[in-house]
Design a protein around this nucleic acid. Sequence first.
DNA 1: CCTTGACATGCAACCGGTTGCATCTGATGG
DNA 2: CCATCAGATGCAACCGGTTGCATGTCAAGG
Lengths: 348, 348
Amino acid sequence: MTPRQNRPTINQVAAAAGVTKSSVSRAFTRPEMLSPETVRKISAAAERLGYVPNHSARALSTGRHGNIALIVPDVANPFFPPLISAAQSEADRFDYCVFLGNSNEDPGQEDKLIGRFAGQVEGFVLVSSRLSDDQIVEHAARRPVVLINRDVKGIPRILIDSAAGVAEAVSHLATLGHRKLVYVGGPHGSWSNKQRRIAVRRAAKDHGLEVAVISNEFAAFESGRKITAAALATGATAAIAFDDLTAQGMLAELADMGVAVPADFAVVGCDDVLGAATYPPLTTVSNRSVEAGKAALNLLMEILQNNAIRDVRYVLDTNLVIRKTTGQVKAGKRSEAALGSDANRARN
Amino acid sequence: MTPRQNRPTINQVAAAAGVTKSSVSRAFTRPEMLSPETVRKISAAAERLGYVPNHSARALSTGRHGNIALIVPDVANPFFPPLISAAQSEADRFDYCVFLGNSNEDPGQEDKLIGRFAGQVEGFVLVSSRLSDDQIVEHAARRPVVLINRDVKGIPRILIDSAAGVAEAVSHLATLGHRKLVYVGGPHGSWSNKQRRIAVRRAAKDHGLEVAVISNEFAAFESGRKITAAALATGATAAIAFDDLTAQGMLAELADMGVAVPADFAVVGCDDVLGAATYPPLTTVSNRSVEAGKAALNLLMEILQNNAIRDVRYVLDTNLVIRKTTGQVKAGKRSEAALGSDANRARN
DNA sequence: CCTTGACATGCAACCGGTTGCATCTGATGG
DNA sequence: CCATCAGATGCAACCGGTTGCATGTCAAGG
């Protein structure tokens, strides 16, 4: 019933080469233990038969699977694919296979996926995990875990520090004459969101700017559109959005409303996932997701090799990429900042 | 040395429940063979110990891994993530884990990935595979394979028929008064590219339009920009691009060149991956990638269950989504069509 | 020439499940 | 009351590798 393909086994190779299976096994894993001639003989036989070691059998006896799992909240969010791709290329260098999990922003789903993968991976990379700190610690106790954009003490983590870029954005807007900003937030469980919100507040304070905060659970084009009216109602003359998608949605909505960007309202995105592909090209905070993916994988590999978890906290800096959605405030706009702040739904 | 976690094994559960491991095994796989009371006893013991069956051990003895592999040419191309996400959700329903492979448009890499995965998956979904037909047939002989956007006889396949949408686009452009079109191509090995090119040619013939074809190996924003001058030089008044990314690049370049869209030049994309997010919002051919991903997975699951490969060829229709990058040809433009066709680099 | 030890290879147990067959029990029917 | 049989459970082999230890060989050293 089971559609077992008749792939040759180690025994068949052994028979063909006139040795025992121990030698065949060693020819593949520790050839230096064998005489060169034996290795050659075995390789030839293996080649001839088309032998490929059985992954499950090997995993069963060694406990190492040669697999890792990468879990992201939303594959379709353009922030993640380049990261996924980079992580995968790195894994490839180490001959590891990558399971991809899509938690769909749902902690329950994320937890379930981890459970499903747990039996056949050596470690996890959790990107922008939506789990609680406790859950993460618990999982990390079982298997090596590396986090990206999540700051949990004791768990190795790669953090993209958008704070620096966001601060630059605020400073840039201040220089352009803006007096009141609105920060349009992102998902609740997101470490990046919290970090950006705090960075906006702090930098604004340094520059003596007013800040309104609007929360917006789902980061996407459509929700960016929806939130735009509320953003305008705060009386701010510029918005810093949680991410480029949100910003892009705002641009579309602003265009439909006849609000000129950047003349009447400035917009800054975050993560630079759209490049110069928006209209007008979006001023945004740079993105280090490729490096983050690469670094996370290398870190995980190192941990797996040394079998020792170091408390690493690796921070990647960002900076502002100025394009065309920010500009000098119009003369009349500054005074309006004082009005209409009742639409704020500030969170801390 | 091996960091084997001390997860409880079937033997420990057996001991705790006072039965043999056969019964524990059956309690999980064929509970109807056991008395309800025994099942209850075993479940309780398993629960208490936190027992989870070992995936590798199970795979070793049954030959089924509960894994499948999904291979795409470029994770970062926005066409694929929604498909990946959809396939994953479906896999989840069947308790399957998904390996993701990124071939980076390279047949060699794709082949290598398949080899790496082969030992631990029950089947493959190859999306827009860049392998040769022979290679695909060869792999399909070993493991069940389902193709998306690749038409190989005898291999189950899901095809997104953009031909219908493309034909609609040509007809739409003809109605608007265009007399000469240019098709801006995509990757060589791409079935979709071939299909679209043929569809453009055929529909253009039906409507008595002239067609130039420009090839453009890598489908992306930047290459879309680069190809724009050549596209204009053909003397066409409208372009149909292999995909939205290419079209978006063309829009950016046209804007920089001061060519008004759609007044001076019309652009049609393909795959509708950008939604209304370009400026102007892009007229494009609809996309069925989510359905394709879902269908491919269900097909694969069916094949795995029935252990019989049917020669399925499942076609998903598309249609034109008219937005703002196509419009009536300006009076003076029609006559220009006859000129400047020396820049054509037509391929068949 | 015998001892010693390094090196190459074989032996057999083990990893953690699954499964065909044997065994045991108790109920059913003649 | 015994033969029969179905249902529940145990036994042991097997899946395909890895690895600690034993064995065998051969060259160098005393």
